[in-house]
Computed example of a mutant assay.
Amino acid sequence: MAQPQVIVVGNEKGGAGKSTLAIHIVTGLLHAGKRVAIMDLDLRQKSLSHFFAHRAAWTAANEQPLPMPFEPDMGDGKAMARASEDDQLAMFEAAFAAAQDCDVILIDTPGGDTALSRAAHGRADQIVTPMNDSFVDFDLLGQVDPVTLELLKPSIYSESVWEARKHRAITQGRQATIDWIVVTNRLAVAEARNRRRLEERMQKLAKRVGFRVGPGLRDRVIYRELFPFGLTVADLSNDIRPVAVSLAHVAARQEMRNLMQALGLDDAVQSMDAAA
């Protein structure tokens, strides 16, 4: 039986938009007809889990069926957070095993270095790292000279991905690689000199540590408006319009399409094109 593709959304900094990105990747895959399992390792906040709980409630109340992911049971999040690392890892492995008949397993990781996050990264076929267009976020990927802003060396999260790649090569062979893509998220609409400086350092670091740079999602009202309903722009149709639709929503849908294309999720792109 074919193994599921494992996508890990990771970044050790909080507030970079990991859960927003995860939500949109999952709904794009669902509309492409993929069987998707989700694992939310942010044990306290649980944004990904809450989003799909909202989705189930909204669709039931409005009699508008929409595709849903499978979420294997990992127990109560707060209780799991209090458990030992060994117990947490045991629950993770059991949940991961329960999702093996899906096409894709998407894992949303917390903003920090945890045993669960390391275990997830070690399982990844693809790591998607969102970051804001800020040197504050870039500091987790690479260190720059405070005077010249020249790139000095990879930083802590880049080292974590390196360790995950090394673990995968040891356990699965040298041919087993992890595709790492860094997407710039929550961009301001206006072009900024700081962003150009950041992009130059990103390209240099990408060549050095081996990631691709892709498009993320801008800071749009529509993403926040749809969250309470458990919906994304991929769900909007003539029958499903909980908020007023505008040209900004068309642009948001194109952003989502560009993201899926950058991740190589061609089925999801074709599904969005067909629905447009």
Rank of each mutant, 00 (worst) to 15 (best):
E85I: 10
D87C: 07
M256S: 07
R123F: 11
E163Q: 15
W162L: 11
A37C: 02
A115T: 04
G173N: 10
G17R: 04
V36I: 03
G216R: 06
V36T: 03
D273Q: 12
A37H: 02
S84H: 05
V136P: 00
S84P: 00
V104G: 09
A276M: 14
R118I: 09
D133F: 12
P130G: 07
P72G: 09
L226A: 02
S47F: 07
A169E: 13
I170S: 13
A176I: 10
T20K: 03
E191I: 07
E255Y: 01
Q270C: 09
L66W: 01
I38M: 02
L247G: 10
L151G: 09
M68K: 11
T114V: 03
E71W: 00
F96W: 15
Y157T: 03
S47K: 06
A94C: 07
A95V: 14
R220N: 10
R118Q: 08
S84Q: 03
H54M: 09
P110F: 01
G173Y: 10
H24E: 04
I181M: 07
G214I: 06
K46N: 09
K207L: 14
F92H: 08
R197W: 01
Q261K: 15
R123Q: 14
C102W: 05
S155G: 02
E200W: 02
G17I: 12
M202L: 14
L259G: 00
G111M: 05
A251Q: 11
M131V: 09
L236D: 01
P4W: 14
C102Q: 15
A97D: 13
Q5P: 02
A252Y: 05
Q45S: 13
V245G: 01
P242G: 00
V36W: 04
G122C: 13
V183R: 00
H121G: 04
R241K: 08
V221N: 06
L106Y: 03
A115P: 00
A79S: 05
E93G: 00
H249A: 04
A57C: 02
D76S: 04
R224L: 14
F70A: 05
S237I: 12
A248Q: 06
L30N: 07
L29K: 08
R257H: 12
G122S: 12
H31A: 02
R186S: 05
I38L: 00
Q45C: 11
A244D: 01
M80T: 15
M256F: 08
A32T: 05
D76I: 13
S158M: 07
V36F: 01
R253G: 10
R241E: 03
G173T: 15
A188C: 05
D125A: 06
D219T: 14
L48H: 06
R220D: 11
P215A: 15
F211E: 14
V9L: 02
G10I: 06
L43R: 02
T114P: 00
V8A: 00
Y157V: 09
A251G: 11
L247E: 13
V182M: 04
L205M: 08
D73R: 10
F92M: 05
A206C: 07
V250P: 01
L265F: 15
R220V: 14
D239A: 08
L30F: 02
A16K: 11
L66A: 06
P67H: 04
G173M: 13
E255P: 00
R208Y: 10
A251K: 11
D86V: 13
D266R: 14
L48G: 11
D139P: 00
T184G: 12
L116N: 06
A206R: 02
D273E: 09
S19E: 08
V213R: 12
